[in-house]
Design a protein around this nucleic acid. Sequence first.
DNA 1: GATGAATGAGATTTCATTCAT
DNA 2: TATGAATGAAATCTCATTCAT
Lengths: 208, 208, 208, 208
Amino acid sequence: MSTKRVIKHPDVRKLEITRAAEILFRKKGYAATSVESIIQKAGIAKGTFYYYFKTKQDILKNLVEQIATNMETYFISVIEDNHLSAIQKLKKLLRSPEKKEKINPSVMKIIHRPENRELQEELNIIAIKVIAPLLAKVFQQGKKEGVFNNTVSVESMQLILAGSQFVLDSGLFHWSSEQRKKFLKELQRMTEQIAGAKPNTLSFISSE
Amino acid sequence: MSTKRVIKHPDVRKLEITRAAEILFRKKGYAATSVESIIQKAGIAKGTFYYYFKTKQDILKNLVEQIATNMETYFISVIEDNHLSAIQKLKKLLRSPEKKEKINPSVMKIIHRPENRELQEELNIIAIKVIAPLLAKVFQQGKKEGVFNNTVSVESMQLILAGSQFVLDSGLFHWSSEQRKKFLKELQRMTEQIAGAKPNTLSFISSE
Amino acid sequence: MSTKRVIKHPDVRKLEITRAAEILFRKKGYAATSVESIIQKAGIAKGTFYYYFKTKQDILKNLVEQIATNMETYFISVIEDNHLSAIQKLKKLLRSPEKKEKINPSVMKIIHRPENRELQEELNIIAIKVIAPLLAKVFQQGKKEGVFNNTVSVESMQLILAGSQFVLDSGLFHWSSEQRKKFLKELQRMTEQIAGAKPNTLSFISSE
Amino acid sequence: MSTKRVIKHPDVRKLEITRAAEILFRKKGYAATSVESIIQKAGIAKGTFYYYFKTKQDILKNLVEQIATNMETYFISVIEDNHLSAIQKLKKLLRSPEKKEKINPSVMKIIHRPENRELQEELNIIAIKVIAPLLAKVFQQGKKEGVFNNTVSVESMQLILAGSQFVLDSGLFHWSSEQRKKFLKELQRMTEQIAGAKPNTLSFISSE
DNA sequence: GATGAATGAGATTTCATTCAT
DNA sequence: TATGAATGAAATCTCATTCAT
């Protein structure tokens, strides 16, 4: 029954466990994911889990911090790149595969639940409070570059971001791919209207 | 010691239990609410709960159906009222106290969780699929009445609805009342831009 | 496997569980007694245990309070009986079978452990702080009745009580019955010396 | 990150671990002290602990044997010193700082617990069986020297020893310093009465 | 209709111990 | 000698659900 004891570098092991947990959290939610299922997926013993994480909550907190840091770092790195135009930055930030890896809406939902209230702060900061202002900055740059006519307020940015995330990325709705395309097209149009851009300036939004 | 057995009309009893559950679900989430706490709040015995509801899930399903029906009925009643202009209808639908009672974003969140997957359909129908198209209809009426210049697509409506709900009504963010006002103002402006309305046509959006 | 569900009066059930726990606590100590073993001895399911007691600690606390109350009540009842002489009271208090049932040195030891620190107060009150003063009172009565020549201070009483309890009743030593007799004889002599009584006035101390 | 591997003389290392364990056992009890906490206090790795001690029990056994040997050696060395009078010996044995270091009531309590039954014998020998008889011998010497009138039986000695230890040195009671003084005074008086000594012959008992 | 005692599967967590390096 | 990652049995506790009354 018992497999041989395999020793790995702590960082590797910890990452493996985190990955296993992440997958399960996304699939079944935090509460419905048992530590038992995590260790089975990770191929470790119960004790190993608790060697790396103090509690089940702890692994969630880890996950969040990781994502938060990743996201912010990535966004800032793009924004501070002086070689890029506003449009180029938006492309990178909104639809690039790099971003896909970092943002993690389902984990956000987990965290937002009242029983994880202590972790909310963290998320307030990233998703809406950090990312949206950073995006608003890029739109400002766009206005300077003459590609947008309006100033986009941080609040508008937050509303748009939240809306698209909830409708498109939350996984709560099961849209057909046509419906999805329609949504992205409308999102593009809305954003162009709000920013005062010429039609199709932001066409990359709707091309997945 | 033991409380007297109190016999009530089944419908009354059932409603009482449902109300107790609703309050707790909103406050602590579905998973974190124990049947024990529900019966305590409702002032009944364990067995009584299971006399009225097959399972814990069952009471949630009940709650959803109830809300869904209430909401849809209310929206349709307003929309079908031929005496009202588009603006009047929007006022009633978006900011009236009657609506406040019926829409229930926290229950929606409960339901949307993966472990309650069977209940999602229901909510897809109401929140985004039913309400948004109904609102889009009213905007269409508004265009006919000459108060809006653009057609507002169902999808835009859904994005705006989702965004405002998530940011403002989810209870996940703790905005100051000024920030809240700023959001509502921006929401108003965004909606006016999208609908192609004159500034302040939809001022009621930002007057709580 | 599963036996039929047997429903009993809560008081009866609670007492049964308490008794089972008491026996195991005495035999193996508090820490070494698992809830599992308690429920097996009591013939109940895990849940039933936690239906009656919030935690494992809780049943210990219960036990203590029970003993404390019993003991004090009994001692006071004897002391306030005006028909009895000091000697008669001491007989009743020190060696009667009624007392045997109430005092419970092994539970006292459990409680005195540092990890149960919160429960110590309780015991300070009974064993040393309550009982010893009550006994000292009886010795005072004895002096008035002319059977003792010395006043016995509360502190002396406490030291004697503690010593005899630790050596004889703690169960930590495994004395032969002769050794035990010798101890009781010496305890008798010591007490007589301290109280200033004629030899064998307190002979009942050494006659089990 | 990882601390350098420090190599020490085995005896030194073993002593360090033993000391760490002793402190923790006294503070929190044997069961409540984890091997983890011991290695942390000792600044070593898990494996190192198990290199020096077979099991957790093993370190306790070590501790006991050490204490037992120390104590007995010390007592005998004092008793066999022909230059000292009985009173001088008692002074050394009962209240000297050397003794303080060697006797160890809290470890005794640990050991006396039922789950450590195998270790009890050891302690029966020291605390009550070895020390008390040795003290009784000194009282005998005192009688020969004319300073005591009565023979003090081993059993009386054991009762007094146990009582004073339990009440005063167990740490289970939190006496004020006045109460403590009162106890010592009464202990002195009791002992003098039992030994048949003139008042204040044993005054050193009550002078800490 | 209503009660609440009883259930038991399963969840989280602890910790003494092992073993590959 | 020394390390610390890995183990897994066992402990405590939760809670939706059942059922005799």
